[in-house]
Design a protein around this nucleic acid. Sequence first.
RNA 1: GCCCUUGUAGUUCAAUGGAUAGAACGAAGCUCUUCUAAGGCUUUGAUGUAGGUUCGAUUCCUACCAAGGGCACCA
Length: 580
Amino acid sequence: MQDEIKNLIKDALKNLDIEVNDIVVEHPEDFKNGDYSTNVALAIAKSVERNPKELAEKIVAEIIRLNVDKNIEKVEIAGAGFINFYLSRKFFSRSVEEILNKAENFGKNDALKGKKIMVEYTDPNPFKPFHIGHLMSNAIGESISRLVEFSGAETKRANYQGDLGLHIAKAIYGLLKNKILQSKEGTHNLQASNIGRAYVHGAEAYEIDEKAKKEIDEINKKIYARSDEKINEIYEWGFKVTMEAFEDLYKILGTKFDLYFLESEMTDIGRDIINDNLGKEIGHEYGKKIFEESDGAIVFKADKYDPKLHTRVFITSQGLPTYETKELGLTVEKFKTYPDMHLSIMITANEQMDYMRVVVKAISLIYPEYGDRMKHITHGMMRLATGKMGSRKGNVIAGETLLNDVRDSILEKMTDRNFSSLEQEKIASDVGVSAIKYSILKQGIGGDIIYDFEKSISFEGDSGPYLQYSYARANSVLEKAQKENILPDPHAFPSETFEVEKLLYKFGEVVLRSTSEYEPHYIANYLIEVARAYNSFYGNTMIVDKEDKTSSYKIALTYAFSFIMKNGLYLLGIEAPKKM
RNA sequence: GCCCUUGUAGUUCAAUGGAUAGAACGAAGCUCUUCUAAGGCUUUGAUGUAGGUUCGAUUCCUACCAAGGGCACCA
């Protein structure tokens, strides 16, 4: 439709002997100003030395003369010289029909057809608690994965986990000091949360207790060397249990990973890459090494290539590879695991932005073919009123605790509905996940999120449960329509156009924008707008009504709404229960 | 010091260079003998400061102020 209007304007301008290559056609914020609008008259008024309003009048006259299609009902001039297009009643009913035909496929596009994309996200570390920061990464990553799939891409979801390192030594220290936490009784979730507690204890001791620090460093060496029978045993148990507990969470959250990369397996690959590129000439314009020795360490001086980057250590003076080296190995491994990958997306917190830029620079110097196929998306932090949350400090909210608390308060709210206990549990879990995910995805991903427990369990207004509620309500209407034997008919429209219709057909545009900017919040904001319009329609109109000849149209509209809501929620990674 | 983010109602967030800057929470009132009241309908309030570019700036540029993050052997 947008192209149709653009062409119409182009033709009109051509008849007026005006050449414009860039015509902007957009949706005005207010429906009062039409369904589409253009500012061409304002934009070109100066270059053709004419009054914008007069020019607009000429263009409109030309458009009206040219418009043979019945999709546009009215063209008007408003404000300083905007040209507003009002779509016809028929256009909206046709778009309802199209949504019914395409159903769960409505909104899909081919923008990324044939592309292979890997998305790495969540990345919790074994032996450490899964906290709400991981929930954030998971919500964003899952949504972006679904968005690119919706645009036709083939995707692999990847999880990268630190199975070696000081954090594990800290956890094992905690476990050794407190044998109760080593209990193999109970579910793996319970055992995993014990290990999380042990980690917090160990991390604290490492900071404040000199003796503990020494012990932990000692344990760390033993883990690497695999020299201590007892530690190996704890390691294997702890690794298994915490990874299993993560799987349970992924299931609840609606994520299924295709690939798991472990940090320990990247070390040698990364080290080999560094050895291969130590002192290597890289093209005539630089003629310098990529990696070089400095103070006994092996570093990459990225600032030589870009003043905004900085130097980073890849191999310490002790000969140990740093995270940077492993990231190098991981990147190569990813491209090897998923041949012909077009794009490797990594999702992490903002704090890793500058560091990742350096690593990406190194990779693009060594492998120019990979450089522009990497995309680092960073998100803000979950923040408490008191300040930064860090699993090292222990002032974190565990993902599981949050999910449970939210679910409980939903169950309380559900007592007046008649559900079997199994149904009730499933719905409460889906609604809980929705409340949390929505509160993360409703805003741009770059900014921090101020975490407010009260708000995260509120289900009113601007929330995931509000969207689900609207969907469930629409389904209830449809059920009633079925009982009364009224079939949907997109042709039996009334003269009046409802606001919700003016929003539904825009879904595809929103998906495109959301995908190209990697910003799920456009979807979230759009869904709220649509839900509000539908709820308002619901409040003002009797939809299922045998006496009303347009009832079958209103039912068709309700179907269309429910498809949009379901597809939109899917893109946010949120389930759409039929009842709640 | 240098680099990167971010400054919008009391609060938490929106706004592809456009029209009267949108929601939600909070507060006040109305609304279930109609399909789910987790709903609907009213009322109330904001662009950090100073310049610049533009017909037009919350958006782009510059400076300043404020918050957060990063800047060599942690991840």
